[in-house]
Design a protein around this nucleic acid. Structure first.
Length: 227
DNA sequence: GCGACAG
DNA sequence: ATCTTGTCGC
């Protein structure tokens, strides 16, 4: 797919925060989508995943939204510029992730990111960055808590609890399977939170994590091991 | 002031 | 994220 919108790039952590504060005004936190295809994004690291310069592999796997069958795969290898800093996580994965997206022949109807969107210290996590760059609807699905407070959701698949930050609902804690640890869903761009949760649940018919994330995780990991 | 902190 | 052994359960 074509990605032509330039993304400002920081030279320091302070600049990175400033960029997020500026770009967050462009996020559209509502909308309803019925994508025909959904792409999962993930990045794997070699060696110390926290270091400033480490080899990475980014994967974009497109699934048929109805059957969850794999439609297309794309992988890119690169080098991260930033060390891992909570809150500035996007700057670590974005360049290689964009390369992987460019390798796709068709534009997906939705992008699912491994991490957070609006549930972020500056309300602009990885899923928001990806949404603004591509202009596509995006959601973030994270495996562990980051910001906000929440009550534990009910024990059954589909049970949810609001994720609150300063009294505002910035995401939702969603149980994707009976009795498993819940995932954290937040809006990235052009999708409402209810819709994001509905999509997350549909993408995870059997396991805790959505098929999009599972496929992208495996592909990026395999690519890293191969090189 | 001290700890916690997506991947 | 990545490094790793054994172990519980379908």
């Amino acid at each position: 797919m074509e990605i032509t919108v330039p993304h400002p790039w920081p030279g320091t952590p302070a600049e990175a925060e400033a960029i997020q504060n500026e770009l967050r005004g462009r996020v559209e936190a509502s909308g309803s989508v019925a994508p025909r295809t959904v792409a999962g994004l993930d990045v794997s690291y070699a060696g110390d995943g926290g270091g400033a310069r480490t080899r990475v592999a980014a994967a974009a796997v497109v699934l048929d939204a109805a059957t969850l069958d794999v439609v297309e795969e794309s992988v890119a290898v690169g080098m991260s510029d930033f060390p891992y800093v909570p809150g500035l996580f996007a700057f670590r994965e974005l360049p290689t992730l964009v390369e992987a997206l460019r390798g796709l022949s068709a534009t997906p109807g939705l992008l699912v990111c491994d991490g957070y969107g609006l549930a972020h210290p500056r309300r602009f996590g990885l899923a928001c960055h990806v949404g603004i760059i591509t202009g596509l609807p995006t959601i973030g699905i994270a495996k562990t808590a980051f910001v906000g407070a929440h009550e534990p959701p009910g024990p059954a698949r589909g049970d949810q609890a609001p994720l609150l930050l300063d009294g505002v609902e910035v995401g939702r804690v969603l149980r994707t399977q009976d009795g498993v640890k819940p995932v954290f869903v937040s809006v990235g761009h052009r999708v409402g939170l209810d819709e994001a949760c509905r999509l997350a649940l549909a993408l995870a018919p059997r396991y805790r994590l959505p098929e999009t994330t599972r496929r992208a995780d495996r592909l990026s990991r395999d690519r890293l091991a191969a090189a």
